[in-house]
Design a protein around this nucleic acid. Structure first.
Lengths: 120, 120
DNA sequence: ACAATAGTTTAGTTATATCTAAAATAATTG
DNA sequence: CAATTATTTTAGATATAACTAAACTATTGT
């Protein structure tokens, strides 16, 4: 299936919640639902289908259980979709700078690094 | 404004289209609309507001024109929002591998960068 | 085969997004 | 100030998304 909008699929907080639940270890649909008390099993199942359609999760059937797990590689196409922005030299620098700053706190080590395009 | 869902804002293809138009150089709202014949000026303006609310564009008024430009740095929070996934060691490796493979073919330059973990 | 369990799918409701057309605002010009 | 230009905002239509409840499918156990 020609991956329907990874970005759109990730845009739903509910689906990100699910994705986080199955990121490190697979879980059966019921287990996922147990972790989300405020929504129906049916709704969870629907989100799981959306995630699977986008390639963001894989499903393994075992007995009457269906174990879901995240497919981290599916974020590659997301990066691809953002590529037009990300790929811009200025954009990349700014993004990475901010990312690093947010993660580690202000770091003096980052030089402005040869502005190749147009320094705003 | 406390940045409403960068991801959700980017999920709209129309808004990505606009963002691309103002990525490298600022444009007046009208200029943006000119590049999008299949939608109303009003609709464009509404999307511009959504983008601005998400911090993805900035606006400069000059005379009766309003010039918009992208704010690449706003993709930082997006990365932050994806951080929980991206930050996972396995995820990062897979994603970056795929990204680099897609963009330039295998390149040895980038080191994996100390994996910080967060408890889920 | 029957009942129980695990999950999906459907029908229908409600909420949210997106769009158009028109009215409103704001700066500029005559 | 009135007209013009550039843009925003509003009201309302239509489409899409998310959810619930219930019906349905499939697997296991008795």
């Amino acid at each position: 299936m020609l991956q329907p909008a990874v970005l759109a699929t990730l845009a739903s907080p509910r689906r990100r919640e699910i994705l986080r639940l199955v990121w490190r270890e697979e879980r059966p649909a019921g287990g996922i639902h147990d972790a989300m008390p405020d929504v129906t099993f049916g709704a969870v199942s629907q989100h799981l289908r959306a995630l699977a359609d986008a390639g963001l999760v894989a499903c393994r059937a075992e007995g009457r259980r269906r174990y879901y797990r995240a497919r981290p590689a599916a974020l590659g196409p997301l990066a691809g979709e953002l590529e037009r922005f990300w790929d811009d030299a200025l954009g990349r620098l700014k993004v990475q700078a901010e990312l690093h700053a947010a993660r580690r706190g202000p770091r003096p080590g980052r030089r402005p690094a040869t502005p190749r395009r147009r320094p705003q």
